[in-house]
Write a protein that binds this DNA or RNA. Structure first.
Lengths: 113, 113
DNA sequence: CAAGAATATTCGAATATTCTAAAATGCGAA
DNA sequence: TTCGCATTTTAGAATATTCGAATATTCTTG
């Protein structure tokens, strides 16, 4: 049940610009390889390699339709992840209470002085 | 304002077990390096290297308190990301309408037959 | 100032990732 | 069958990441 670190392993290969672009497309619906190739501006073999990596991680899957390979999203974290990536965030989180940022004091931990 | 790919670049270095563990700790509050070192079971220099990488990416920052470096979360995506990583998800997203999974038909795209 | 604590930096080896080019596979049509 | 399309696989070079070991830095206290 160490689900957190499993999720980390799973998502690690998705943090690549091309792979994110692929996932964004697939979030809109099923796409076959040559459609993705058109959309992305990279070689077909490279597209295939990225798809393969994503599939190995269980992020996507495909079904075969004639000579087409139709890829679709499989991992349920992906839509949530894409949402975060597209969201607007403030520059920074508010600083901690006890720090120069807020001028409110010094560290409260238990290290030696 | 292609904020999406910037976010991808930013988050790329966080997908490492040790770094996630660090971020989980920092999500609870400010921590200094030796506290993190205790918690994680790795060398001080390695902790420091991970902290440095996270800081370079703008994920965390620190303030100095005597000889302690007190690290804290800075990037506002992190809490949302940790939430996803800790969430329970169903095994798979529902398959697409037009595929063997749902037995509902074949690909609707416009590739050659 | 010297010593020690807390932390950072540098270097190098091991490993992993990514891309290009080339060759291989599988399917459908003629 | 044979051909051509859609896609994958393989191989290898270029690059990036990660980690341990050694060393350096910075601050505090005596």
């Amino acid at each position: 049940m160490n689900t957190l670190m499993n999720h980390v392993e799973t998502l690690k290969p998705v943090f690549h610009p091309v792979r994110i672009a692929i996932l964004e497309e697939l979030a809109k619906g099923v796409k076959c390889v040559s459609e993705l190739e058109e959309f992305l501006a990279i070689s077909q073999s490279n597209v295939s390699q990225h798809l393969s990596a994503l599939r190995l991680a269980g992020i996507i899957d495909y079904f075969i339709d004639g000579r087409l390979r139709c890829y679709f999203l499989k991992n349920p974290m992906i839509p949530d992840l894409l949402e975060i990536l597209k969201k607007e965030y403030p520059e920074e989180l508010p600083g901690p209470e006890c720090c120069p940022v807020t001028k409110k004091g010094t560290y409260h931990g238990d290290r030696k002085k």
